[in-house]
C-alpha cells in the first residue's frame, strides 16, 4: 500500500523549505540539458519560423519586411493548398483506423500463439528497421511499378487484368493503394507491440470469470474484456497515429516524385510536400513557414478534439 505525497508536503516548514531548494536544484540539473537543447534547436527555430511567416522572405531567411497575414492569405486562397489540407485529412481518416485495426488484430493473433510467438512478433515488427526511403524504393520499383514484372501486376495478370500503372493512375486514385500499404507495413509492427504489451497486462482472472459465466466465444471475450481494458493504449495509439499521419512526407515525396525532373504532381500532395516545394524549391520561406504553422495548428486542434472526445468517456473508433 503506497501513498503518494501530494503536491503540498505535510512535513514541518523547515524541512519543506530545505526540501524545496534541493528539489529545485535537482529539477534544474535534470531538466536543463533537455530544456536548453529544445530551446535552441526547436523553440528558437519555431520562433524564427513564426516571425518568418509574417515576413516577406524570398531566397533568404533574414527577417525584414513585415507583411502581417499576407503569407497566410496567399496560402489559404490557393486551391492547391486547400486541396492538400483536405487530402491529408482524408489520408489520416483512412490510415489511422486501418493501422489501428491491423495492429490490434495482429496483437490478438500473436498473443494466441504459444510457440513461435517471438518469431511472429519479430516478423511483424521488423519493417520498423527499414527507412521510408528504402521502403519507397521497393514499393515503387518492384511491388507496384507499372510494368508487368511488378508483384502487383503479376498478381493482376493471374486474374486476367492488364498491367496497371499504380502510382501514375490518379483517376481512379490507385496510387492511394501504394501509399497506404507502405505506411501500414512500416508502422503496424510498433503499434502491435504497444497493444501486445497492453493485452499481456490484462489479468487472466477476468477471462476465467467470464468463461465461468458462460461467455465463452472469442469475439465476446474480445469485445467485453480485451478491448475495454486496452482503452489507455488505444487512446495513445490513435494520438500517435494521427500526429504522424498529418506530418506525412517521406513516402509521398519518394514514391511520387520524378527524381531529377521534379516534385510530386498535384495529386497526392500532402501539406508538407506542398510546403517543401514552396520553401526549398521556390525559395519562398515566408509562405513556407506560414504553411508549417497552419499544419501545426491543424494538428493541435485535432489532438485537442480527440482528447476532448476521449475525456467524455466515448469509445475510440
Amino acid at each position: 500500500m503506497s501513498t503518494r505525497t501530494g503536491t503540498g508536503s505535510t512535513s514541518a516548514p523547515v524541512r519543506r523549505r530545505r526540501a524545496d531548494r534541493g528539489a529545485w536544484l535537482a529539477f534544474v540539473v535534470l531538466t536543463a540539458p533537455m530544456v536548453v537543447g529544445l530551446f535552441v534547436f526547436k523553440y528558437v527555430a519555431m520562433g524564427w519560423g513564426l516571425l518568418l511567416s509574417f515576413s516577406e522572405a524570398r531566397g533568404t531567411i533574414a527577417l525584414g519586411t513585415w507583411v502581417g497575414l499576407e503569407n497566410y492569405r496567399t496560402l489559404l486562397t490557393d486551391p492547391r493548398f486547400r486541396d492538400s489540407l483536405a487530402m491529408i485529412v482524408v489520408f489520416t481518416v483512412i490510415i489511422v483506423p486501418l493501422t489501428f485495426a491491423l495492429a490490434l488484430g495482429l496483437a490478438v493473433l500473436v498473443n494466441r500463439l504459444r510457440r513461435g510467438r517471438a518469431l511472429f512478433r519479430t516478423t511483424f515488427f521488423l519493417p520498423a528497421a527499414v527507412s521510408y526511403v528504402v521502403a519507397s524504393l521497393i514499393w515503387k520499383m518492384s511491388l507496384f511499378s507499372g510494368v508487368p514484372s511488378s508483384v502487383a501486376n503479376s498478381l493482376a495478370g493471374l486474374v486476367g487484368q492488364e498491367p496497371i500503372a499504380w502510382i501514375a493512375t490518379v483517376d481512379p486514385p490507385l496510387y492511394w493503394v501504394v501509399l497506404v500499404t507502405v505506411r501500414l507495413w512500416l508502422q503496424v509492427g510498433l503499434y502491435m507491440i504497444l497493444f501486445l504489451a497492453g493485452i499481456q497486462e490484462i489479468p487472466a482472472e477476468l477471462y476465467e470469470a467470464a468463461k465461468v459465466d458462460g461467455a465463452a466465444s472469442e469475439w465476446k471475450l474480445f469485445r467485453h474484456i480485451t478491448f475495454p481494458m486496452l482503452r489507455n493504449t488505444s487512446v495513445a495509439v490513435v494520438l500517435l497515429l494521427v500526429i504522424a499521419a498529418f506530418q506525412a512526407f517521406d513516402e509521398f515525396y519518394n514514391l511520387l516524385s520524378t527524381g531529377l525532373a521534379g516534385a510530386p504532381g498535384p495529386d497526392g500532395r500532402p501539406p508538407l510536400v506542398y510546403l517543401y516545394d514552396v520553401a526549398l524549391v521556390q525559395q519562398n520561406y515566408g509562405v513556407g513557414s506560414a504553411g508549417a504553422f497552419l499544419v501545426t495548428l491543424l494538428i493541435v486542434v485535432v489532438t485537442l478534439l480527440q482528447s476532448r472526445l476521449v475525456g467524455l468517456g466515448r469509445r475510440d473508433a
Binding site: 515503387k140 507499372g146 499504380w166 493512375t169 527524381g259 531529377l260 525532373a261
Partner: peptide
C-alpha cells in the same frame, strides 16, 4: 504510354 517503370525518362 509507359508508366511506372523502375527508372525515369532520363
Amino acid at each position: 504510354m509507359l508508366l511506372g517503370y523502375p527508372t525515369e525518362w532520363y
